[in-house]
Write a protein that binds this DNA or RNA. Structure first.
Lengths: 225, 225
DNA sequence: ACCTGAACACCGTTCAAGT
DNA sequence: ACCTGAACACCGTTCAAGT
């Protein structure tokens, strides 16, 4: 990482804060995002964390939107293990798991992404790998695109709906809500409240979903081939 | 719908705006949400639309969160066709399509739901129907819960990722982004840019995804039965 | 050139006052 | 009892001034 100025990192001139790089500001923003959620990142709080004036941030990014894009890039740029050589199903499984891990590590990504289409180069690396695996497996380009998009929808939706580490809490909350439903209108849920709420989040649910989708894809490939 | 006061609807006393019901305020909020998105609903704008003072809203709802919950209820309470009698696969398909239609009609629901767990009674009607269909089909309770949750993740994720009516625009945007990628790092996407971007949104993608998941579920049911 | 305080047009919400 | 303006502590961002 280069500073982009002649200032030696760590050395401040005249008690003034040292010049920063775009990457440093974006990384600090990502830290705030991970710690306090998407509402926890404000320009004034980020400036405070960096020890600079609020308006100084606008020297690095034209707007908060541009800052958010950079923060997302910073999260996605982290080395992603590229799985290869295990057969298309195993490769795809590993790829989706890797993306899932990234989304769990940075829950705010999901909320940010919801607001604008996902077309930044760093994020499209996932598309590149996924499409390559599917085409190698024998899917036609159109089918491969649909299949990839489905996997993307699943991993994104799963991260969006299921709170990362507070799964136990969310499950308890769901259980309470289900138990307080009027049994006359909700007979099935009343009877199976435990099973229903235990499927909220967790690795079991993730792997059940991913496995089921891969089963479906396998079947479609076999049918067309 | 009852007014909850002695005031006759439509009659205003002394040039003052008539008293409103919680439902009327929630419905107006939903209209603003549908028209201007989740950021378009503010307390002052809603008050303006209703012709009342901003603080009057707090007579109906303790906070904006409570108002949002009521707006979501208003959207979900709308009559949902309950599909029955077509075999479990057809019933499930129809149910997911009905939920999808609701989410497309009210895009803001997705963004609101992302922030808090989905445990309001009106929303759990979907769970009640889905679980009933799956259990009747022969799924064990735990498997039924996982399967339901997978379908929910899919329909929610699809609505979250794919912009409702601006699919064409989003597709064009994706195409542009993919075409401007460095082909050396993105060889597969560069070659199949058309297929990749045409899978963004649209009914084709939705039905491909739903069909694939149902295929997977069918296979799991057959395997366990 | 780089940095930043004051100010503006918004937010949601508290509080005290109006009828 | 029901309604509401003024005020407060925040937002993102413009603008003009500081070094």
């Amino acid at each position: 990482m280069r500073t982009g100025t002649a200032t030696v990192p760590g050395v401040r001139r005249r008690g003034r804060p040292a010049s920063l790089t775009r990457e440093q500001v974006a990384t600090a923003a990502l830290e705030l995002l991970d710690r306090d959620g998407v509402d926890g990142l404000t320009m004034q709080r980020l400036a405070g964390a960096l020890g600079i004036g609020t308006m100084t941030i606008y020297g690095y990014f034209r707007s908060k939107d541009e800052l958010l894009d950079a923060a997302v890039d910073a999260a996605v740029t982290a080395p992603m293990r590229v799985p290869r050589g295990g057969g298309w199903r195993a490769d795809l499984h590993a790829l989706v798991v890797a993306v899932h891990r990234t989304l769990v590590r940075h829950p705010a990504l999901v909320q940010i992404r919801l607001r604008r289409p996902i077309v930044r180069p760093e994020a499209l690396r996932f598309g590149e790998h996924g499409m390559a695996i599917l085409l190698r497996a024998g899917f036609e380009p159109e089918q491969a695109a649909h299949a990839f998009r489905l996997l993307f929808t699943f991993v994104f939706g799963h991260a969006a709906i299921n709170p990362g580490r507070t799964a136990a809490e969310a499950r308890a909350q769901t259980a309470t809500a289900v138990q307080s439903l009027p049994p006359a209108r909700f007979p099935t849920l009343a009877q199976h409240a435990d099973a229903f709420s235990s499927a909220v989040g967790g690795d079991d649910q993730f792997h059940y979903g991913l496995g089921t989708i891969l089963d479906g894809l396998e079947q479609r490939l076999a049918r067309s081939g």
